[in-house]
Design a protein around this nucleic acid. Sequence first.
DNA 1: CTGTTAGCGCTTTCAA
DNA 2: TTGAAAGCGCTAACAG
Lengths: 339, 339
Amino acid sequence: MITLKKLAEELNVSISTVSKALNDSTEISTETINKVKNLAEKYNYRPNKAALSLKSNRTLTIGVVIPDILNRFYSKVLSGIHDSADKNGYDVITITTNESMLKEIDSLQILSRGTVDGVIIAMSEETLNKNDYSHIKEFTMKQTPIVMFDRVTDKINCDKVIIDDFDAIYNEVKSLKALGRKKIGFITTINDLNVGKFRANGFRKASFDFFNKFDKNLILRISKNHDKHQEIEKFIKKNKPDAIISADIICGVISINIARNLNIKIPENLSVVGFGDKTISEYSFPKLTTIYQHGKEIGNRSVELLVDRMNSKWYGLNKNLNTYTTDIIPTLTIGGSSK
Amino acid sequence: MITLKKLAEELNVSISTVSKALNDSTEISTETINKVKNLAEKYNYRPNKAALSLKSNRTLTIGVVIPDILNRFYSKVLSGIHDSADKNGYDVITITTNESMLKEIDSLQILSRGTVDGVIIAMSEETLNKNDYSHIKEFTMKQTPIVMFDRVTDKINCDKVIIDDFDAIYNEVKSLKALGRKKIGFITTINDLNVGKFRANGFRKASFDFFNKFDKNLILRISKNHDKHQEIEKFIKKNKPDAIISADIICGVISINIARNLNIKIPENLSVVGFGDKTISEYSFPKLTTIYQHGKEIGNRSVELLVDRMNSKWYGLNKNLNTYTTDIIPTLTIGGSSK
DNA sequence: CTGTTAGCGCTTTCAA
DNA sequence: TTGAAAGCGCTAACAG
């Protein structure tokens, strides 16, 4: 590897002169600059990244933690992440968890070594199931910005990117009807931003269109501070739906667990369709794959949010933004439509 | 970020003591070791990766350069790469070229900054088309080991992983026959390792099975030092096949170019099926997607070869291995079967 | 305009 | 058994 030192030696100047020359410092004469640049060019000199990050405390690399790279949805998101990261001059280091919480913990450890400037993560199913986000929480205590997408939780305060798609829910209802399902329940979580509002609207419209009626009771809205498990159990016992659409993946997973505990046969007597990715739909019958139109966009947005955050931190704006953003854009909604 | 320095200050010992303690040096007393380790544990200390690589000249990261992450084949390979890299303690940094040679050149530049210990690459279509591998060649001049897979070329001396699958060719012939093709040509390149031998066998057997005959003339074997363009042009003019199966992607691309120059309508009058990935099959009609069974395995093998190479380099075995391997395993064949 | 120096976090001689 | 110091490649404050 060709270094500043070698260039300096060959030119009989000091290392700092070379460094400054390559960075177009006004301190250096044009003549020297040219001399240096020519030699650098000749040897195809590239500054060592490790040295740079050690010095600058920036790696210009972002870390991505996803459950599965073969999942179409995640690979689309990843593709979007790559594009945007590239545009912003960041490298991408990807780790897959295979839905394992242990691996996820590991991954965050690996990325906590000054390897990356920021992290984009979709949590593993195991993490969601165990409802234990301590490792993520711990990570957020450090200085490294983190953005969650798709598999998110209220328990963690950070930027989030989720989808909220009217059409998808609408079509989901249509498909379930076509499959003979008659009593479809819809579960959504309420938060300050009315996330899931568009989805609920999609559900309502579909109910009218395909069942000629809309039963308010078939929508379960769970408030932030309520116990999801309890609410969902009550909901299932009371309404006995033969299909459940969950506006987020967490409630989907919970629904499945509860139904199993209640000895309801899945998928024979209850289809559960999660509005997340393939993981959930694997449990439903027949297998329904929610089609995401917005994978790339989610990736793009995640990077943008992360870059913003990293820049704020870098330029010392953290104080201002930390409180600011946590309240204002904890969740970014994509693809919502209010038709 | 918690550093050795901070630990040292808090414990009132020197930095080097802390370093040694954490590395279980026999120089340090058990008592001190425990003290240090406890504090490190408490603060969840992780050694800074940049510092480590600067010092050790190893990054424990491998770079992957692929045309497209959304291509099923490449994502499978990538998945295999991830698994193996993880097992070997390497991080993975991925860059996609979108089939652009410029982007590929860029990618190699990025990875030439001491960012990675080794590179796994499948070249872009543009690179293959232009038949210009100077950037790869240049890269191999540096110290960083490189492994090519799928999209390979004889022009570069390095470890390679390609597929050589009897069944796939066999089925390809079957499909083409089913589509009404009557005169199927097979193009393969010959090298010392008889790569493509299994494929040729697959073709021969399929010819007998599906056409009840095997016309030797319909196999074109191109020797290393022959001009592919010329040979293929001659072959097409002489045999006028209505379908061509190319054992490697390069000949596939070349065939298409030549056919176009000859005003042969693709895909109406000539199907070209490349034995590589989707890129080629997009030009064939109807679109044939070669199904790869071995994506993950290719990824695994690539990493293994690379790790071997990196270790040899690291442990100073290069001299020995450099000559050795260039001759013996320039190409690794996977999935070959001689049924 | 150019050079010296310190320091980013870490390992590793060498000295105490 | 511990510490001081050098050095990996780079930048930047400070001196000349």
